[in-house]
Amino acid sequence: MKSGNIMIVGVGGQGSLLASKLLGHLLLKEGFDVKVSEVHGMSQRGGSVVTYVRFGEKVASPVIDEGEADFIVSFEILEAARWLRYLKPDGHIVTNTQQIDPMPVIIGAKEYPKELEDKLKASGAAVDVMDCLTLAKEAGSAKAVNVVLIGRLSHYFDIPEDKWIEAIEEIVPAKFTEINKKAFELGRNFES
């Protein structure tokens, strides 16, 4: 892959920052120009949040627009559906199965859409749906959901596995390295 666009989507507070930090660090070391765009402030308070990671020989725009994403990495499946129109026709979705009801659903004004997994697949996108929370707990911490997702994402890159592991070692605090390495493996070797 000579260039690419990765969107990391989720609900404010789910911890997508580590995922984008890891990707940015790795892609820069691989010799790419990289831009990572985040949203801070009010929308972080339980709202829908998105981080854009772009890499290539030279990256201009800091954001990914509709129809431009090669990958959507999603912490919550409704968010994958929300941002679907940003995916390229041949793009990949790597998503957690977790469902978090948004306020209109909580108060009963709207319904949480049903069978999202099937509908995402029917859209023509390649979709990996993983119960990341269970995998993360298996690795040793519920907080490792982000690295499980990154593990699966790594499967689609021609960057050697040891480079990913190296990036985890350099970014994650030392006492959590082993948990995160295991979470990465569980994600990477996930069979959909």
Binding site: L78, R85, L87, P104, E111, P113, L116, K119, S123
Partner: peptide
């Protein structure tokens, strides 16, 4: 890109 037919509730 494509969108689903479902209404996606705002968050």
């Amino acid at each position: 890109g494509k969108s689903l037919d479902d209404e996606i509730p705002v968050r």
